[in-house]
Design a protein around this nucleic acid. Sequence first.
DNA 1: CTCTAACTAGAACATCGCCTCTAGATCAAG
DNA 2: CTTGATCTAGAGGCGATGTTCTAGTTAGAG
Lengths: 199, 199
Amino acid sequence: MGRPAKFTDDQLLDAAREVVAVHGVTATVAQVSAASGATTGSVYHRFRSREELLVRLWLRSIERLHERLFEVEAEHDDPGEALVALAVETARYSREHPAEARAMTLYRHERLVHTAPQVLHDRVVHLNDGVFAMLGRLAAQRFPTAADDPHLVRRVFTCVIGLCYGLIRPYIVAATPIPVWLDDVIARAVAAALTTIDQ
Amino acid sequence: MGRPAKFTDDQLLDAAREVVAVHGVTATVAQVSAASGATTGSVYHRFRSREELLVRLWLRSIERLHERLFEVEAEHDDPGEALVALAVETARYSREHPAEARAMTLYRHERLVHTAPQVLHDRVVHLNDGVFAMLGRLAAQRFPTAADDPHLVRRVFTCVIGLCYGLIRPYIVAATPIPVWLDDVIARAVAAALTTIDQ
DNA sequence: CTCTAACTAGAACATCGCCTCTAGATCAAG
DNA sequence: CTTGATCTAGAGGCGATGTTCTAGTTAGAG
């Protein structure tokens, strides 16, 4: 075997996360290497490009949020309550982990499906599969009459995750604390938004 | 006097708007000059920097939306209905003018307050004054008991403009049509969000 | 007509940041 | 100990892009 690694992938991603928390998507490889203690050469030994590094960071941050969301689903019996709880939990999680949340804002899923590095393409494509399946389950329970709407999951996603994310995003990007009163706004707004699917 | 101008400022801004609609914030001066027919030298004769050009475009797009919003206020007697109508109108306007809407997403107001070019600083700082005054008027009517809350206007702004913008932003950035069903989602969500201010 | 302010023109310059390249260090296996 | 795969190291190539520079053009004023 060869020499053991001095830095783990996660260590480099952690460094990138802190740089991104300050500089956003314009974070440079030089900044990441400075923050991690590795040199640019070492960074490029692990990641084929700056893009791959940042996309990996983005993927990791979103997957971590998703784990939380799955736990939230398990804690609720009522599908309507669960949907609202998913949105509120997204806000809470982002408030508690601002740097992780900032990493989530690096890209948009739809764009990356077309532009992500080859190696990550499949991971990007299937990133939301689990959450969409969960939303499909909850939606089928909550809106039995709309079960045949092919866009049902997409609409539910917009009313729950999209609505919440849109409200908290400005705070995340500005590195400003997400106000606690926003949780209540999100809960009521999501519940009301979902009523558009009823009729 | 000297030679008359071959391009007006608005012509150059229009060209920049079309480039931004495709390339977003990474639009280059070369792309703008190509789209307008002017050379980079001419562009720099009008605008001191790329930043000033793009900030001017951003300001123009937001001021144009604001004009619409003032008209909407005048069309409504009930303050609650007016607040909801403001949000829905923002979505409609963005749907009808996707390139203008894309220009609105170039910057965030809070960041520009600190980083905008000297010449534009005042214009940036007072950009929202009119809208905030309008929201203050409507909020004072709609929430008479909360009139002493120093953050009232900020909260109303979040519940109306912030909520709407958060929902439509993904479509604007992706250059995807804003679904019509979103108008209904926005109307109900805004109305519900505003109820958090009542108690 | 001549003068001149204002503008056009686009080549040239400077900077910045991604990425590569070659050399050297390290440590497990044999 | 020797070997060799793997990693560290950081200087430098290279392309892209913001900005400047100098020359030339235009059209109104006197």
